[in-house]
């Protein structure tokens, strides 16, 4: 079986020019891979660079050296060296990302926020909205809120909208940054279910989860980020 994600010797250092140019090493020697249908959970103390690694895989953070191999449309692409256009292509059709916070355009209705990734990939609006509705239902967002922009929602509600938006598409790679952080037990269980479904569909996932119980429920393998800690 070929890996969907193949990270090799990736390294990240922040140079803080506004603080006199101090170097802030984040991670080095990051090496792991993720196969289809498996969920790899990154573990380690906070500040160890878990989020940074996730962002490097998404192309949101640059990589100083090493390789972020992503299987995109049957070929392995090094995201660390890809052109912006190519990264956008990869995000559109290969990598999904569920961030901790929802970043949505002010006036767009919740149902459209969730349906957008499908519409962008060419699904008819009505079909996309139907699927968005199903997911919102499962995540216990009452139907009367669907036409409102999510900006007015509570933190937990926003997070669930965010999860719906992240899980709606059929992308082969999914990155999860604390998807259950502000959820109650019932909704956490829904997320665990959703992850299990994605695994059955062969989706490769990388997640950051602080909750031991959830981690136990979704992780197929655990990668300890502490081993990549960059020596200061």
């Amino acid at each position: 079986m070929t890996a969907m994600i193949d990270v090799a010797d990736a390294r990240k250092t922040f140079t803080m020019h506004l603080q006199g140019g101090i170097e802030l090493p984040v991670v080095r020697g990051v090496t792991f891979h993720v196969y289809p249908g498996e969920c790899v959970v990154l573990s380690g103390p906070s500040g160890a660079g878990k989020s940074s690694i996730l962002k490097m895989i998404f192309g949101n953070y640059r990589c100083d050296s090493g390789r972020i191999g992503i299987r995109h449309r049957g070929a392995l692409v090094d995201l660390a060296a890809a052109e912006p256009r190519q990264i956008l292509n990869i995000r559109r059709s290969t990598i999904g990302y569920v961030s901790q916070f929802l970043r949505a355009v002010p006036r767009v209705a919740t149902i459209d926020v969730v349906a957008e990734p499908l519409i962008v990939n060419g699904m008819a609006r009505a079909d996309a909205q139907a699927r968005a509705g199903e997911l919102l239902h499962r995540l216990n967002i009452p139907e009367r809120l669907w036409q409102l922009p999510p900006a007015t929602f509570s933190g937990g509600e926003q997070q669930r909208v965010n999860i719906a938006r992240g899980f709606i598409s059929d992308l082969p790679i999914l990155l999860l940054d604390e998807p259950t952080a502000s959820l109650d037990a019932a909704n956490r269980a829904v997320v665990v279910e959703l992850v299990a479904e994605k695994k059955r569909q062969g989706v490769a996932m990388v997640a950051i989860v602080h909750d031991d119980e959830i981690r136990h429920l979704i992780a197929d393998r655990i990668v300890d980020v502490a081993s990549f800690a960059a020596a200061a």
Partner: peptide, 11 residues
């Protein structure tokens, strides 16, 4: 090693 060629959906 890394194939970037065929990995484009755009027309």
């Amino acid at each position: 090693m890394v194939d970037q060629g065929s990995a484009n959906l755009d027309t």
